[in-house]
């Protein structure tokens, strides 16, 4: 199923995106499934990483598996400082990846949580150099404001630590960013199931980035389609404005009059 209307586009940098699902290319058992995953997901944006070539064991890079019409979003994974992130971003652009960059600055190897200060510095440097900067971040309001001031094109808060599939553990904080930050909020990391992505979209997230949950699922192409459906459903629900929650008592859906057996004397 693809969206039949294109009046709800996601504007980031120079792009107007119809799909609000971004996908990744890491952790696939066989990279040859990536074209089928990309097609099933409907995604228009796909992440890649930059690494040293293994000199003793040269393999063709990831590019051969990525459909040509997709927009590449290289990440700066491996960077521990803003300077390292900027170096990776410039290499990726020189390699023909385009101007989009996902900033990822991490020095904690156990929890893989992003360093807000270094991320903001890298964002500022690269935005000034004309990059469309999408920083991965812990959903903290002050860090998010720093990223806005630094010139980010969107902010990408984590739902849970990378690769954990635990869902929206940071739900409350992401809700605050959606309310307060005048940039697209793209939930990245921790989304393990389509229902998690759907929930993020219902809350008003602009998009979701999903890698592990698709790549290590039993059937990546089917799971990619499920995530595509979930993101569309969540977005549609957000636009339709979900009904209010009622606490403390029930409210019947059916009329409370005209029951059979009622006596009117």
């Amino acid at each position: 199923m693809t969206s039949s209307t294109n009046d709800d586009l996601l504007h980031i940098g120079d792009a107007f995106l119809e799909s609000r699902l971004f996908i990744g290319t890491g952790k696939y058992g066989d990279d040859a499934v990536i074209p089928a995953v990309a097609q099933a997901s409907g995604a228009q944006v796909i992440t890649v990483a930059l690494r040293r070539v293994d000199i003793g064991n040269p393999k063709d890079g990831m590019l051969s598996h990525i459909p040509k019409n997709m927009r590449l979003l290289p990440n700066t994974s491996g960077a521990r400082t803003a300077d390292e992130a900027a170096r990776i971003a410039r290499l990726a652009r020189a390699a023909g990846c385009g101007d989009w960059i996902k900033i990822e600055v991490i020095s904690d190897n156990r929890h893989l949580l992003p360093d807000g200060y270094e991320t903001a510095k890298a964002t500022e440097t690269l935005a000034k150099e004309g990059f469309v900067v999408l920083p991965y971040m812990n959903p903290d309001l002050y860090v998010a404001r720093d990223l806005v001031n630094a010139g980010a094109a969107a902010v990408m808060p984590l739902g849970a630590p990378i690769g954990t599939n635990r869902g929206l553990r940071t739900r409350e904080m992401i809700g605050i960013l959606i309310e307060e930050i005048p940039l697209p909020i793209i939930v990245d990391a921790g989304i393990g199931r389509p229902s998690h992505a759907c929930e993020a979209m219902e809350m008003g997230a602009a998009a979701c980035l999903v890698n592990t949950a698709i790549a290590v699922s039993g059937h990546p192409a089917r799971m990619a389609a499920a995530f595509g459906d979930a993101v569309r459903a969540g977005r549609a629900a957000y636009l339709a404005r979900t009904a209010p929650v009622l606490e403390g008592h029930a409210a019947a859906s059916s009329p409370l009059t005209g029951f059979l057996g009622e006596c009117h004397e």
Binding site: G24, T25, K27
Partner: peptide
Amino acid sequence: LELLHLVGGG
């Protein structure tokens, strides 16, 4: 000299 290429990543 650094020789790099694109690999899978999220």
